[in-house]
Amino acid sequence: MQIRPAELDAIRAGTIDLAFRRWDRPRLLVGTRMRTRVGLLEVTSVDRVDLEAITDAEASRAGATRAALLDLLARRPEHPVYRIGLRWAGEDPRIALRADDRLSPGDLAALRSRLERLDRSSPRGPWTRTVLALIADQPEVRAPDLAAGLGRDTVTFKRDVRKLKELGLTESLAVGYRISPRGRAVLDAWPADG
């Protein structure tokens, strides 16, 4: 579900707690947590509603006037309207994870095991150490440039970097990436032969 930046800020501030969408079927489940630039958002409700039943108060809770909301929802009239309850559910847990560079031998072993699984499942063969080192050596370099330097396409390169990000090893920037303190600890502890 796409949410505009100003709406994300308002959800975090608690001034917006509803969204309305036209979908062919519900696209979210209650309890779903979405990572956004303002942190985690949680879906608190998903209800099919009649367009005419949307109140001024509900439109306001979605950050719009009723007229503006109805105008927006007039598009794609073949699909039903869903009212989605939303709340800010806290900071993105990857922020704290990537700052945690105090890794025990067990932590390092678990991370290495995860990275080895990623390497084994890749049709290109091992890539995790190469990509971590590349990002460490070339922070703030555009993904297409990094991918090209490895002879890879941008789409699959970015997908791989997201896998590292999920482990708290990298961080996305406005342009490019940087290695996190956690990623630096993993890279520094990587045996020279492995």
Rank of each mutant, 00 (worst) to 15 (best):
R184V: 13
A174T: 10
R182S: 12
K163D: 07
G168H: 01
A174N: 08
I179A: 11
R182K: 09
R178M: 09
S180G: 09
T154P: 02
L164Q: 00
F157T: 01
L169W: 13
K163L: 15
Y177V: 04
A174R: 10
G183P: 04
L167K: 01
R159E: 14
R152G: 06
R159I: 12
V155E: 10
V155S: 08
L164Y: 00
G183I: 02
G151F: 04
K163E: 12
Y177N: 06
G168I: 00
Y177E: 07
K165N: 09
E171W: 01
R182F: 13
G168K: 01
Y177R: 05
G183H: 01
V161S: 00
R152F: 15
G168E: 02
L167C: 04
L164A: 02
R184W: 05
I179G: 06
D160Y: 06
T154D: 08
A174I: 11
Y177F: 14
V175N: 09
T156W: 08
T156I: 13
R152Y: 13
R162Q: 08
E171C: 04
R152W: 15
L173W: 08
E171R: 02
G168D: 01
R152C: 12
I179Q: 11
R162A: 12
V155H: 06
F157L: 05
R159Y: 13
T154H: 04
L164K: 00
L169M: 15
E166F: 04
R159M: 14
D160R: 10
I179T: 08
S172A: 15
D160Q: 12
T156A: 12
R152I: 07
R184A: 15
L164E: 01
L167T: 01
K158W: 03
S172E: 15
I179S: 09
G176V: 02
T170Y: 02
E166N: 05
T156P: 07
K163R: 08
T156M: 12
V161M: 02
L169T: 08
G176P: 07
E166M: 05
A174Q: 10
L167P: 02
F157N: 02
T156E: 09
G168S: 05
S180N: 12
G151T: 10
K163W: 07
K158F: 07
L169Y: 11
E166Y: 03
R159H: 14
G151V: 07
R178K: 05
E171G: 00
D153F: 05
R152T: 02
I179R: 08
A174G: 08
L173R: 13
S180E: 07
R152P: 04
L173V: 09
K165F: 11
S180M: 13
S180V: 11
F157Q: 02
E166W: 01
G183E: 03
V161K: 00
V155G: 07
G151H: 02
D153T: 05
Y177H: 11
L164H: 00
G183A: 05
T156Y: 06
R178L: 06
I179Y: 09
